[in-house]
Design a protein around this nucleic acid. Structure first.
Lengths: 242, 242
DNA sequence: AGCCGCGATCTTGTATGCAATCCGCGGTGG
DNA sequence: CCACCGCGGATTGCATACAAGATCGCGGCT
């Protein structure tokens, strides 16, 4: 039907498991992902793990360094900006496609979803965040554009990862109310309202992430100091200045 | 630097070689891609071929059917529409990012490229088509958004494949003049002109592809007849009409 | 005492082998 | 004559085996 993940159950299983682990921060950005260990954990050979890691690398969730193995990606701020910019364009494409074209069944699915979000709100845990993200996936799905769905999924995943790196702890992510408002605008066919709502919504998320220079961004910081510093590249930078 | 193809030379080599072969229609859509044969041709083992095919599948250039091997993708018209819609959004994002922000060096690179296109025009062969496509890649690159660059590359590839399936033979692809006009608009910072030019440009390509119902689209046709036909699914469609 | 170079160990990259699955063909029965 | 069935060849899926490269710690040198 679609064209991505579930190729054959085995590699797909590992792929999805690792993906979820990364998105839930069970595997922190930068964490090493040794093939052997994963393979034994899943009871398969390295071959399948390798395939799964390759796909995750294709989605930008893991980094593959030659002869040095895989690790959970830790996107730079520049990459974050890139991802957000594209995500915005894709999600606007989705709302444009949907605006004024929601049939009853589609609207019902959206409503049901935000209801679920609202219900999960008090639990406050990862479920809430996941549902908020899946709302956007649902929008993409409703366009009927399978490729758009794939891209939005990929971009949303990367956004999740980015927020886990740079986001404020308080990321209650997407406000349920904003989702409801968007559904209303889609139903009413108010194109400019749709776009404005979606942009505002995404900007809120993005702003939460990109403003702060959290401790731990190191790579960005060091990059700006590099090239002018010590003659021999400092290998043992413990770099924990206040 | 970027984040895609050239991981390690070997698998990347095969990947690019197959990609080019597909885009040049040396390998026609639907063509079977046996691992063994490719492996022996490149002098490597099936492992690497498999990796390359996997990546190509991720880009939508080949289809992987479980236990049935890989073949060059032959996108349906619905997929074609999806791809075009997304490509348009991405390329508009690119021109928006570039409009009025071209520095001299960037403009020079663009000019040099279209000059090369013009020079290759009389040769009329695959080079011309390739250069026309690469103009769009160059635009994406100039935005400095690596992810956008990757996506545009992927989408342009798929467009190429689609045109090879559904396009009219005469596809002299992108007119050099349209490229020149776009550069001018970018330099002048005329945002709406930029968008209009790009949209017109892409619509021209898209229109060339999607209007005709060429013989050979079969899948689309059969899809509409399926579900009401024979009780046992007809297995022996040899389907090689002139 | 600190630094550099070197070997041991672990990890990854690639090839190969084996079992499972699918496709095509010939045989058989209606 | 046509449709169904079963078998052989070919091809994929996966695991394992082997080799190259990287990481880390230790001993020698300054």
């Amino acid at each position: 039907m679609t064209e991505d993940t579930p190729k054959n159950s085995r590699a797909g299983t590992i792929h999805q498991a690792l993906r979820q682990a990364i998105l839930e921060q069970a595997l922190a950005p930068g964490a090493k992902l040794p093939e052997d260990l994963i393979a034994s954990q899943f009871g398969v050979s390295r071959t399948l793990v390798r395939e799964a890691l390759g796909r995750l690398a294709g989605e930008g969730l893991v980094e593959l360094r030659h002869n040095r193995g895989a690790s959970v990606a830790s996107p730079s701020l520049a990459e974050a900006r890139d991802v957000f910019a594209i995500r915005r364009a894709m999600e606007l494409l989705a709302v444009d496609a949907l605006c004024g074209r929601l049939d009853a069944a589609q609207e019902a699915r959206l409503q049901a979803h935000v209801d679920a979000e609202a219900a999960a709100q008090p639990m406050g845990d990862a479920t809430s965040i996941r549902l908020a993200g899946e709302f956007h996936l649902l929008l993409a799905e409703l366009t009927g554009n399978a490729l758009l769905q794939r891209y939005v999924a990929e971009l949303a995943s990367r956004c999740s990862l980015i927020l886990s790196l740079y986001g404020r702890p308080h990321s209650a992510d997407c406000a349920v109310e904003e989702h409801r408002a968007l559904i209303a605008a889609l139903r009413d066919g108010d194109a400019s309202a749709c776009r404005a709502l979606m942009e505002h919504h995404l900007d809120a998320v993005m702003g939460r992430a990109l403003l702060p220079q959290r401790p731990g961004d190191m790579r960005e910081v060091l990059a700006r100091y590099a090239g002018t510093t010590s003659p021999s590249p400092p290998r043992r930078a413990k770099a924990r200045s206040a």
